[in-house]
Design a protein around this nucleic acid. Structure first.
Lengths: 247, 247
DNA sequence: CGGATACTTGAGGGTTGTCAAAATATGTGG
DNA sequence: CCACATATTTTGACAACCCTCAAGTATCCG
Protein backbone atom coordinates (compact mmCIF):
# COMPACT_ATOMS: atom_id res chain seq x y z
CA UNK A 1 0.00 0.00 0.00
CA UNK A 2 1.53 3.35 -0.96
CA UNK A 3 0.92 6.67 0.77
CA UNK A 4 -1.60 7.86 -1.79
CA UNK A 5 -3.77 4.83 -1.14
CA UNK A 6 -3.50 5.36 2.60
CA UNK A 7 -5.13 8.70 2.51
CA UNK A 8 -7.77 7.55 0.08
CA UNK A 9 -9.35 5.68 2.97
CA UNK A 10 -9.67 8.98 4.78
CA UNK A 11 -10.94 10.88 1.77
CA UNK A 12 -13.60 8.28 1.10
CA UNK A 13 -14.70 8.58 4.70
CA UNK A 14 -14.74 12.39 4.70
CA UNK A 15 -16.72 12.42 1.48
CA UNK A 16 -19.51 10.65 3.31
CA UNK A 17 -19.54 13.77 5.49
CA UNK A 18 -18.98 16.67 3.12
CA UNK A 19 -18.03 17.48 -0.47
CA UNK A 20 -14.31 18.05 -1.06
CA UNK A 21 -12.70 19.97 -3.92
CA UNK A 22 -9.74 18.55 -5.82
CA UNK A 23 -7.49 21.07 -4.15
CA UNK A 24 -8.69 20.01 -0.72
CA UNK A 25 -8.16 16.36 -1.56
CA UNK A 26 -4.68 17.21 -2.75
CA UNK A 27 -3.97 18.94 0.53
CA UNK A 28 -5.06 15.82 2.40
CA UNK A 29 -2.89 13.66 0.16
CA UNK A 30 0.14 15.73 1.01
CA UNK A 31 -0.29 15.21 4.74
CA UNK A 32 2.79 13.54 6.21
CA UNK A 33 2.07 10.23 7.88
CA UNK A 34 3.93 7.46 9.62
CA UNK A 35 2.52 3.99 9.12
CA UNK A 36 2.73 1.46 11.92
CA UNK A 37 1.51 -2.11 12.16
CA UNK A 38 0.01 -3.38 15.40
CA UNK A 39 -0.78 -6.90 16.48
CA UNK A 40 -4.12 -7.87 17.97
CA UNK A 41 -4.98 -6.65 21.46
CA UNK A 42 -2.49 -3.82 21.54
CA UNK A 43 -3.02 -0.23 22.58
CA UNK A 44 -2.64 2.38 19.85
CA UNK A 45 -3.20 5.30 22.22
CA UNK A 46 -3.50 5.06 25.96
CA UNK A 47 -5.49 6.88 28.64
CA UNK A 48 -3.41 9.73 30.04
CA UNK A 49 -1.39 10.16 26.86
CA UNK A 50 -0.93 13.64 25.47
CA UNK A 51 -0.83 12.81 21.77
CA UNK A 52 0.89 15.01 19.19
CA UNK A 53 -0.56 13.07 16.28
CA UNK A 54 -3.85 11.47 15.27
CA UNK A 55 -4.24 7.88 14.16
CA UNK A 56 -5.99 7.01 10.92
CA UNK A 57 -7.06 3.37 10.70
CA UNK A 58 -5.83 1.87 7.40
CA UNK A 59 -6.72 -1.79 7.85
CA UNK A 60 -8.02 -3.93 10.66
CA UNK A 61 -10.24 -2.61 13.41
CA UNK A 62 -9.86 -0.76 16.72
CA UNK A 63 -12.06 0.24 19.63
CA UNK A 64 -12.19 2.95 22.28
CA UNK A 65 -12.39 1.77 25.84
CA UNK A 66 -12.04 2.78 29.43
CA UNK A 67 -10.84 0.44 32.14
CA UNK A 68 -12.03 0.97 35.71
CA UNK A 69 -9.71 0.24 38.61
CA UNK A 70 -11.44 -3.01 39.45
CA UNK A 71 -11.11 -4.41 35.93
CA UNK A 72 -14.52 -3.53 34.59
CA UNK A 73 -14.23 -2.27 31.05
CA UNK A 74 -16.53 -0.20 28.88
CA UNK A 75 -16.02 -0.16 25.14
CA UNK A 76 -17.30 3.07 23.61
CA UNK A 77 -17.08 2.45 19.90
CA UNK A 78 -15.61 0.37 17.12
CA UNK A 79 -13.59 1.95 14.31
CA UNK A 80 -12.93 0.74 10.81
CA UNK A 81 -10.55 1.81 8.02
CA UNK A 82 -10.96 5.50 7.23
CA UNK A 83 -11.86 6.39 10.80
CA UNK A 84 -9.70 8.59 13.04
CA UNK A 85 -10.65 7.41 16.52
CA UNK A 86 -8.57 9.99 18.38
CA UNK A 87 -9.39 13.01 16.26
CA UNK A 88 -10.57 14.73 19.44
CA UNK A 89 -6.97 14.83 20.66
CA UNK A 90 -6.47 17.69 18.19
CA UNK A 91 -8.27 19.94 20.67
CA UNK A 92 -8.30 18.01 23.92
CA UNK A 93 -4.90 17.63 25.45
CA UNK A 94 -5.26 14.45 27.47
CA UNK A 95 -6.67 11.13 26.38
CA UNK A 96 -9.46 10.28 28.81
CA UNK A 97 -9.66 6.74 27.41
CA UNK A 98 -7.61 4.29 25.38
CA UNK A 99 -7.77 2.96 21.83
CA UNK A 100 -6.87 -0.69 21.25
CA UNK A 101 -6.80 -3.12 18.35
CA UNK A 102 -9.25 -5.97 17.92
CA UNK A 103 -7.12 -7.70 15.28
CA UNK A 104 -3.79 -6.99 13.58
CA UNK A 105 -4.19 -3.43 12.38
CA UNK A 106 -2.20 -0.85 10.44
CA UNK A 107 -2.49 2.76 11.45
CA UNK A 108 -1.19 6.00 9.92
CA UNK A 109 -0.12 8.65 12.42
CA UNK A 110 -0.67 12.22 11.22
CA UNK A 111 0.96 15.09 13.17
CA UNK A 112 -1.47 17.50 14.80
CA UNK A 113 0.58 20.33 13.41
CA UNK A 114 -0.01 19.24 9.83
CA UNK A 115 -3.72 18.72 10.37
CA UNK A 116 -4.00 22.15 11.97
CA UNK A 117 -2.20 23.69 9.01
CA UNK A 118 -4.61 22.09 6.54
CA UNK A 119 -7.54 23.14 8.71
CA UNK A 120 -6.34 26.73 8.77
CA UNK A 121 -5.92 26.86 5.02
CA UNK A 122 -9.02 24.87 4.08
CA UNK A 123 -11.94 25.69 6.37
CA UNK A 124 -14.15 23.16 4.62
CA UNK A 125 -11.73 20.40 5.57
CA UNK A 126 -11.76 21.67 9.14
CA UNK A 127 -15.53 21.63 9.09
CA UNK A 128 -15.60 18.10 7.67
CA UNK A 129 -13.31 16.93 10.47
CA UNK A 130 -15.39 18.77 13.04
CA UNK A 131 -18.41 17.09 11.53
CA UNK A 132 -16.70 13.72 11.89
CA UNK A 133 -16.27 14.26 15.62
CA UNK A 134 -19.91 15.33 15.82
CA UNK A 135 -21.10 12.16 14.13
CA UNK A 136 -18.97 10.27 16.61
CA UNK A 137 -20.78 12.09 19.38
CA UNK A 138 -24.11 11.16 17.77
CA UNK A 139 -23.05 7.51 17.94
CA UNK A 140 -22.16 7.90 21.60
CA UNK A 141 -25.62 9.30 22.26
CA UNK A 142 -27.33 6.41 20.52
CA UNK A 143 -25.21 3.95 22.46
CA UNK A 144 -26.35 5.74 25.60
CA UNK A 145 -29.93 5.07 24.58
CA UNK A 146 -29.08 1.42 24.07
CA UNK A 147 -27.24 1.10 27.35
CA UNK A 148 -29.79 2.98 29.37
CA UNK A 149 -33.11 1.98 27.94
CA UNK A 150 -32.89 -1.06 25.70
CA UNK A 151 -33.01 -4.78 26.36
CA UNK A 152 -30.09 -7.05 25.65
CA UNK A 153 -31.78 -8.23 22.44
CA UNK A 154 -32.27 -4.71 21.19
CA UNK A 155 -28.74 -3.66 22.08
CA UNK A 156 -27.07 -6.53 20.31
CA UNK A 157 -29.27 -6.24 17.25
CA UNK A 158 -28.59 -2.51 17.14
CA UNK A 159 -24.84 -2.92 17.16
CA UNK A 160 -24.99 -5.48 14.36
CA UNK A 161 -27.10 -3.11 12.26
CA UNK A 162 -24.80 -0.16 12.94
CA UNK A 163 -21.67 -1.97 11.93
CA UNK A 164 -23.03 -3.31 8.66
CA UNK A 165 -24.32 0.14 7.70
CA UNK A 166 -20.98 1.75 8.47
CA UNK A 167 -19.00 -0.83 6.53
CA UNK A 168 -21.32 -0.35 3.57
CA UNK A 169 -21.02 3.45 3.78
CA UNK A 170 -17.28 3.37 3.11
CA UNK A 171 -17.48 0.53 0.60
CA UNK A 172 -15.86 -2.06 2.83
CA UNK A 173 -18.77 -4.48 3.21
CA UNK A 174 -18.26 -7.82 1.53
CA UNK A 175 -21.73 -7.57 0.08
CA UNK A 176 -25.02 -5.92 0.95
CA UNK A 177 -25.60 -8.22 3.89
CA UNK A 178 -22.11 -9.23 4.93
CA UNK A 179 -19.15 -7.62 6.66
CA UNK A 180 -16.21 -8.43 8.88
CA UNK A 181 -16.97 -8.88 12.54
CA UNK A 182 -13.79 -9.60 14.47
CA UNK A 183 -15.44 -8.94 17.83
CA UNK A 184 -15.52 -11.60 20.52
CA UNK A 185 -18.56 -12.14 22.68
CA UNK A 186 -16.61 -10.80 25.64
CA UNK A 187 -15.88 -7.59 23.78
CA UNK A 188 -19.51 -7.34 22.70
CA UNK A 189 -20.51 -7.58 26.34
CA UNK A 190 -18.10 -4.84 27.34
CA UNK A 191 -19.50 -2.63 24.59
CA UNK A 192 -23.14 -3.26 25.47
CA UNK A 193 -23.02 -3.47 29.23
CA UNK A 194 -23.72 -7.21 29.28
CA UNK A 195 -21.95 -10.34 30.45
CA UNK A 196 -20.30 -12.69 28.00
CA UNK A 197 -22.72 -15.42 28.95
CA UNK A 198 -25.77 -13.34 28.24
CA UNK A 199 -24.39 -12.12 24.92
CA UNK A 200 -23.94 -15.73 23.98
CA UNK A 201 -27.52 -16.67 24.78
CA UNK A 202 -28.96 -13.72 22.87
CA UNK A 203 -26.80 -14.38 19.81
CA UNK A 204 -28.03 -17.94 19.77
CA UNK A 205 -31.59 -16.72 19.71
CA UNK A 206 -30.86 -14.32 16.87
CA UNK A 207 -29.29 -17.21 14.99
CA UNK A 208 -32.16 -19.51 15.87
CA UNK A 209 -34.61 -16.98 14.45
CA UNK A 210 -32.65 -16.93 11.19
CA UNK A 211 -31.89 -13.24 11.49
CA UNK A 212 -28.12 -13.51 11.32
CA UNK A 213 -25.27 -15.85 10.55
CA UNK A 214 -22.29 -15.05 12.72
CA UNK A 215 -19.37 -17.38 12.24
CA UNK A 216 -15.66 -16.98 12.56
CA UNK A 217 -15.19 -13.27 12.14
CA UNK A 218 -17.87 -12.66 9.58
CA UNK A 219 -21.34 -11.25 10.05
CA UNK A 220 -24.11 -12.02 7.58
CA UNK A 221 -27.48 -10.42 8.14
CA UNK A 222 -30.11 -12.73 6.72
CA UNK A 223 -33.20 -10.76 7.53
CA UNK A 224 -32.44 -7.06 7.59
CA UNK A 225 -36.03 -6.01 8.22
CA UNK A 226 -36.39 -8.41 11.09
CA UNK A 227 -33.14 -7.43 12.74
CA UNK A 228 -33.80 -3.72 12.27
CA UNK A 229 -37.18 -4.11 13.95
CA UNK A 230 -35.72 -5.94 16.90
CA UNK A 231 -33.06 -3.26 17.25
CA UNK A 232 -35.47 -0.40 16.60
CA UNK A 233 -32.60 0.73 14.40
CA UNK A 234 -32.88 4.00 12.53
CA UNK A 235 -29.70 4.94 10.67
CA UNK A 236 -30.47 8.66 10.70
CA UNK A 237 -28.08 9.25 13.57
CA UNK A 238 -25.12 8.22 11.44
CA UNK A 239 -25.78 11.32 9.33
CA UNK A 240 -24.72 9.60 6.16
CA UNK A 241 -26.61 12.00 3.94
CA UNK A 242 -23.28 13.55 2.98
CA UNK A 243 -24.40 17.07 3.80
CA UNK A 244 -23.42 19.30 6.67
CA UNK A 245 -25.81 21.90 7.97
CA UNK A 246 -26.88 24.76 5.71
CA UNK A 247 -23.79 26.09 3.99
CA UNK B 1 -30.58 41.30 31.62
CA UNK B 2 -29.14 43.20 28.68
CA UNK B 3 -27.50 41.65 25.60
CA UNK B 4 -23.96 42.22 26.85
CA UNK B 5 -24.69 40.20 29.95
CA UNK B 6 -26.27 37.45 27.89
CA UNK B 7 -23.13 36.72 26.01
CA UNK B 8 -21.00 36.97 29.12
CA UNK B 9 -22.45 33.62 30.15
CA UNK B 10 -21.05 32.18 26.95
CA UNK B 11 -17.71 33.90 27.26
CA UNK B 12 -17.24 32.67 30.79
CA UNK B 13 -17.98 29.15 29.60
CA UNK B 14 -15.64 29.35 26.61
CA UNK B 15 -12.88 30.70 28.80
CA UNK B 16 -12.97 27.45 30.73
CA UNK B 17 -12.06 25.88 27.38
CA UNK B 18 -9.55 28.26 25.80
CA UNK B 19 -8.06 31.72 26.20
CA UNK B 20 -9.83 34.48 24.27
CA UNK B 21 -8.43 37.83 23.18
CA UNK B 22 -10.35 41.05 23.72
CA UNK B 23 -11.04 41.25 20.01
CA UNK B 24 -12.45 37.74 20.02
CA UNK B 25 -14.66 38.51 23.00
CA UNK B 26 -15.84 41.62 21.21
CA UNK B 27 -16.75 39.53 18.18
CA UNK B 28 -18.79 37.24 20.41
CA UNK B 29 -20.50 40.22 22.02
CA UNK B 30 -21.59 41.50 18.65
CA UNK B 31 -23.34 38.25 17.75
CA UNK B 32 -27.03 38.86 17.07
CA UNK B 33 -29.33 36.91 19.33
CA UNK B 34 -33.02 36.51 19.97
CA UNK B 35 -33.98 35.86 23.55
CA UNK B 36 -36.93 33.64 24.31
CA UNK B 37 -38.43 32.50 27.61
CA UNK B 38 -39.71 28.95 27.97
CA UNK B 39 -41.83 27.41 30.69
CA UNK B 40 -40.93 24.15 32.38
CA UNK B 41 -41.22 20.91 30.39
CA UNK B 42 -41.15 22.52 26.98
CA UNK B 43 -39.08 21.59 23.96
CA UNK B 44 -36.50 24.13 22.85
CA UNK B 45 -35.44 22.07 19.84
CA UNK B 46 -37.10 18.91 18.64
CA UNK B 47 -35.91 15.69 17.03
CA UNK B 48 -36.16 15.99 13.26
CA UNK B 49 -35.77 19.78 13.28
CA UNK B 50 -33.32 21.35 10.88
CA UNK B 51 -32.18 24.29 13.00
CA UNK B 52 -30.80 27.51 11.50
CA UNK B 53 -29.71 28.83 14.89
CA UNK B 54 -28.09 27.54 18.05
CA UNK B 55 -29.53 27.98 21.52
CA UNK B 56 -27.45 29.43 24.34
CA UNK B 57 -28.86 28.78 27.79
CA UNK B 58 -29.07 32.03 29.75
CA UNK B 59 -30.93 30.93 32.87
CA UNK B 60 -32.68 27.79 34.01
CA UNK B 61 -31.66 24.35 32.86
CA UNK B 62 -32.29 22.07 29.89
CA UNK B 63 -31.57 18.47 28.93
CA UNK B 64 -31.04 16.43 25.78
CA UNK B 65 -33.26 13.42 25.37
CA UNK B 66 -34.50 10.84 22.95
CA UNK B 67 -37.94 9.31 23.16
CA UNK B 68 -38.49 5.78 21.85
CA UNK B 69 -41.76 4.81 20.19
CA UNK B 70 -42.97 2.91 23.23
CA UNK B 71 -42.44 5.84 25.58
CA UNK B 72 -39.05 4.89 26.99
CA UNK B 73 -36.89 7.96 27.29
CA UNK B 74 -33.14 8.40 27.59
CA UNK B 75 -31.75 11.68 28.84
CA UNK B 76 -28.26 12.30 27.48
CA UNK B 77 -27.08 15.32 29.38
CA UNK B 78 -28.05 18.31 31.46
CA UNK B 79 -27.13 21.85 30.42
CA UNK B 80 -26.70 24.96 32.51
CA UNK B 81 -26.32 28.68 31.70
CA UNK B 82 -23.44 29.27 29.30
CA UNK B 83 -23.94 25.92 27.55
CA UNK B 84 -25.03 25.58 23.92
CA UNK B 85 -26.70 22.18 23.87
CA UNK B 86 -27.34 22.11 20.14
CA UNK B 87 -24.01 23.47 18.97
CA UNK B 88 -23.64 20.32 16.88
CA UNK B 89 -26.46 21.56 14.65
CA UNK B 90 -23.93 23.97 13.18
CA UNK B 91 -22.51 21.03 11.19
CA UNK B 92 -25.16 18.33 11.42
CA UNK B 93 -28.31 19.16 9.55
CA UNK B 94 -30.93 17.17 11.43
CA UNK B 95 -31.52 16.99 15.12
CA UNK B 96 -31.34 13.33 16.08
CA UNK B 97 -32.71 14.12 19.54
CA UNK B 98 -34.62 16.85 21.38
CA UNK B 99 -33.71 19.47 23.93
CA UNK B 100 -36.25 20.29 26.62
CA UNK B 101 -36.46 22.49 29.69
CA UNK B 102 -36.43 21.18 33.25
CA UNK B 103 -37.65 24.47 34.70
CA UNK B 104 -38.61 27.88 33.31
CA UNK B 105 -35.63 28.80 31.17
CA UNK B 106 -34.47 31.67 29.01
CA UNK B 107 -32.53 30.92 25.87
CA UNK B 108 -30.71 33.09 23.34
CA UNK B 109 -30.93 31.90 19.75
CA UNK B 110 -27.86 32.72 17.65
CA UNK B 111 -28.05 32.32 13.85
CA UNK B 112 -25.74 29.68 12.39
CA UNK B 113 -24.74 32.19 9.78
CA UNK B 114 -23.38 34.62 12.38
CA UNK B 115 -21.54 31.91 14.25
CA UNK B 116 -20.00 30.65 11.03
CA UNK B 117 -18.87 34.18 10.18
CA UNK B 118 -17.17 34.58 13.54
CA UNK B 119 -15.61 31.14 13.18
CA UNK B 120 -14.23 32.02 9.76
CA UNK B 121 -12.69 35.26 10.99
CA UNK B 122 -11.47 34.00 14.37
CA UNK B 123 -10.12 30.47 14.12
CA UNK B 124 -9.43 30.36 17.83
CA UNK B 125 -13.11 30.93 18.53
CA UNK B 126 -13.95 28.16 16.09
CA UNK B 127 -11.50 25.90 17.88
CA UNK B 128 -12.96 26.78 21.27
CA UNK B 129 -16.42 25.89 20.02
CA UNK B 130 -15.12 22.69 18.47
CA UNK B 131 -13.50 21.95 21.79
CA UNK B 132 -16.82 22.54 23.54
CA UNK B 133 -18.47 19.87 21.38
CA UNK B 134 -15.54 17.55 22.13
CA UNK B 135 -15.93 17.99 25.86
CA UNK B 136 -19.60 17.22 25.37
CA UNK B 137 -18.57 14.02 23.64
CA UNK B 138 -16.25 13.21 26.55
CA UNK B 139 -19.22 13.54 28.88
CA UNK B 140 -21.22 11.19 26.68
CA UNK B 141 -18.42 8.64 26.89
CA UNK B 142 -18.28 8.82 30.66
CA UNK B 143 -22.04 8.46 30.85
CA UNK B 144 -21.65 5.35 28.69
CA UNK B 145 -19.26 3.94 31.27
CA UNK B 146 -21.79 4.69 33.98
CA UNK B 147 -24.69 3.19 32.06
CA UNK B 148 -22.80 0.12 30.93
CA UNK B 149 -20.59 -0.82 33.82
CA UNK B 150 -21.55 0.93 37.02
CA UNK B 151 -24.05 0.12 39.76
CA UNK B 152 -27.02 2.34 40.52
CA UNK B 153 -25.16 3.79 43.51
CA UNK B 154 -22.13 4.70 41.45
CA UNK B 155 -24.20 6.18 38.65
CA UNK B 156 -26.22 8.45 40.87
CA UNK B 157 -23.22 9.56 42.90
CA UNK B 158 -21.35 10.26 39.67
CA UNK B 159 -24.04 12.50 38.27
CA UNK B 160 -24.23 14.49 41.50
CA UNK B 161 -20.46 15.01 41.44
CA UNK B 162 -20.48 16.02 37.77
CA UNK B 163 -23.17 18.62 38.19
CA UNK B 164 -21.61 20.32 41.19
CA UNK B 165 -18.23 20.50 39.45
CA UNK B 166 -19.79 21.98 36.34
CA UNK B 167 -21.76 24.59 38.27
CA UNK B 168 -18.62 25.57 40.13
CA UNK B 169 -16.58 25.77 36.92
CA UNK B 170 -18.77 28.57 35.54
CA UNK B 171 -19.22 30.29 38.89
CA UNK B 172 -22.87 29.37 39.30
CA UNK B 173 -22.62 27.16 42.38
CA UNK B 174 -24.26 28.62 45.47
CA UNK B 175 -21.16 27.70 47.44
CA UNK B 176 -18.41 25.11 47.31
CA UNK B 177 -20.76 22.29 48.19
CA UNK B 178 -24.14 23.51 46.98
CA UNK B 179 -25.86 24.02 43.64
CA UNK B 180 -29.28 23.98 42.03
CA UNK B 181 -30.73 20.60 41.27
CA UNK B 182 -34.11 20.94 39.60
CA UNK B 183 -34.16 17.31 38.47
CA UNK B 184 -36.95 14.97 39.51
CA UNK B 185 -36.24 11.38 40.45
CA UNK B 186 -38.04 10.30 37.30
CA UNK B 187 -35.72 12.40 35.18
CA UNK B 188 -32.73 11.08 37.09
CA UNK B 189 -33.87 7.57 36.28
CA UNK B 190 -34.23 8.39 32.59
CA UNK B 191 -30.73 9.86 32.60
CA UNK B 192 -29.14 6.93 34.40
CA UNK B 193 -31.04 3.99 33.00
CA UNK B 194 -32.88 3.31 36.25
CA UNK B 195 -36.48 3.27 37.44
CA UNK B 196 -37.86 6.09 39.55
CA UNK B 197 -38.39 3.69 42.42
CA UNK B 198 -34.81 2.54 42.46
CA UNK B 199 -33.46 6.08 42.21
CA UNK B 200 -35.52 6.90 45.25
CA UNK B 201 -34.12 4.03 47.29
CA UNK B 202 -30.53 4.85 46.40
CA UNK B 203 -30.95 8.56 47.17
CA UNK B 204 -32.30 7.66 50.56
CA UNK B 205 -29.20 5.61 51.25
CA UNK B 206 -26.92 8.45 50.17
CA UNK B 207 -28.85 10.73 52.50
CA UNK B 208 -28.78 8.19 55.31
CA UNK B 209 -25.01 7.94 54.99
CA UNK B 210 -24.77 11.73 55.37
CA UNK B 211 -23.17 12.15 51.96
CA UNK B 212 -25.73 14.56 50.52
CA UNK B 213 -28.65 16.76 51.40
CA UNK B 214 -31.08 16.90 48.51
CA UNK B 215 -34.20 18.90 49.19
CA UNK B 216 -36.50 20.93 47.06
CA UNK B 217 -34.37 21.73 44.07
CA UNK B 218 -31.09 22.20 45.85
CA UNK B 219 -28.18 19.79 46.15
CA UNK B 220 -25.73 20.04 49.02
CA UNK B 221 -22.82 17.62 49.07
CA UNK B 222 -21.86 17.06 52.69
CA UNK B 223 -19.01 14.64 52.19
CA UNK B 224 -17.28 15.27 48.90
CA UNK B 225 -14.59 12.64 49.46
CA UNK B 226 -17.11 10.01 50.36
CA UNK B 227 -19.38 10.73 47.42
CA UNK B 228 -16.48 10.91 44.99
CA UNK B 229 -15.27 7.52 46.16
CA UNK B 230 -18.68 5.94 45.75
CA UNK B 231 -18.95 7.43 42.28
CA UNK B 232 -15.36 6.63 41.36
CA UNK B 233 -15.54 10.17 40.04
CA UNK B 234 -12.50 11.68 38.35
CA UNK B 235 -13.16 15.12 36.89
CA UNK B 236 -10.39 14.85 34.30
CA UNK B 237 -12.91 14.02 31.57
CA UNK B 238 -14.49 17.46 31.91
CA UNK B 239 -11.22 18.92 30.60
CA UNK B 240 -11.53 21.99 32.76
CA UNK B 241 -7.81 22.74 32.64
CA UNK B 242 -8.62 25.59 30.27
CA UNK B 243 -6.12 24.49 27.68
CA UNK B 244 -6.67 22.91 24.32
CA UNK B 245 -4.14 20.58 22.80
CA UNK B 246 -0.69 21.89 21.95
CA UNK B 247 -1.10 25.20 20.18
C1' DC C 1 -0.55 -31.70 17.83
C1' DG C 2 -1.01 -29.04 22.07
C1' DG C 3 -2.01 -24.96 24.49
C1' DA C 4 -4.69 -20.95 24.69
C1' DT C 5 -8.54 -18.52 23.66
C1' DA C 6 -13.28 -18.34 22.68
C1' DC C 7 -17.77 -20.33 22.89
C1' DT C 8 -21.51 -22.95 25.11
C1' DT C 9 -24.42 -24.80 28.77
C1' DG C 10 -26.48 -25.18 33.45
C1' DA C 11 -27.79 -23.76 38.05
C1' DG C 12 -28.69 -20.38 41.30
C1' DG C 13 -28.69 -15.66 42.97
C1' DG C 14 -28.91 -10.59 43.05
C1' DT C 15 -29.76 -6.02 41.44
C1' DT C 16 -33.15 -3.68 39.57
C1' DG C 17 -37.91 -3.34 37.43
C1' DT C 18 -43.01 -3.34 37.76
C1' DC C 19 -47.23 -2.53 39.91
C1' DA C 20 -49.97 -0.30 43.21
C1' DA C 21 -51.04 2.77 46.68
C1' DA C 22 -50.09 6.08 50.32
C1' DA C 23 -47.79 10.29 51.87
C1' DT C 24 -45.87 14.54 50.86
C1' DA C 25 -44.76 18.57 48.26
C1' DT C 26 -45.97 22.00 44.78
C1' DG C 27 -48.73 25.14 42.48
C1' DT C 28 -53.01 27.66 41.31
C1' DG C 29 -57.32 29.97 41.65
C1' DG C 30 -60.62 31.85 44.55
C1' DC D 1 -54.04 32.61 52.57
C1' DC D 2 -56.58 28.59 52.13
C1' DA D 3 -58.48 24.64 49.28
C1' DC D 4 -57.95 21.79 45.91
C1' DA D 5 -55.72 19.53 41.91
C1' DT D 6 -51.50 17.84 40.37
C1' DA D 7 -46.94 16.25 40.49
C1' DT D 8 -43.47 14.08 43.09
C1' DT D 9 -41.69 11.16 46.58
C1' DT D 10 -42.01 7.16 49.33
C1' DT D 11 -43.15 2.35 50.67
C1' DG D 12 -44.05 -2.63 50.02
C1' DA D 13 -44.46 -6.99 47.62
C1' DC D 14 -43.15 -9.63 43.94
C1' DA D 15 -41.08 -10.73 39.47
C1' DA D 16 -37.65 -10.60 35.83
C1' DC D 17 -33.72 -9.89 33.46
C1' DC D 18 -29.31 -10.49 33.64
C1' DC D 19 -25.06 -11.82 36.44
C1' DT D 20 -21.82 -14.98 38.58
C1' DC D 21 -19.69 -19.18 39.02
C1' DA D 22 -18.32 -23.38 37.12
C1' DA D 23 -17.42 -26.79 33.89
C1' DG D 24 -17.29 -28.63 29.44
C1' DT D 25 -16.65 -28.09 24.26
C1' DA D 26 -15.09 -26.08 20.09
C1' DT D 27 -11.83 -23.31 17.58
C1' DC D 28 -7.68 -21.06 16.53
C1' DC D 29 -2.79 -20.88 15.90
C1' DG D 30 2.02 -21.81 16.37
Amino acid sequence: MNPAQHVDQLIRKLETLAALSDEEKQALRSLPMTVKAFGADQDVVREGDCPVECCLVLSGMVFRYLMLDDGRRQIMGFYIPGDIPDLQSLHIRFMDHSVGTLVPTTVAFIPHQSLNDVNARYPRVANALWRDTLVDAAMFRLWMVSLGRKSAHERIAHLLCELLVRFKAVGLAKDDQTCEFPITQGELGDALGLSTVHVNRVLQELRGDRLIILRGSSLHINDWEGLQQRAKFNPTYLHLDGRGAAE
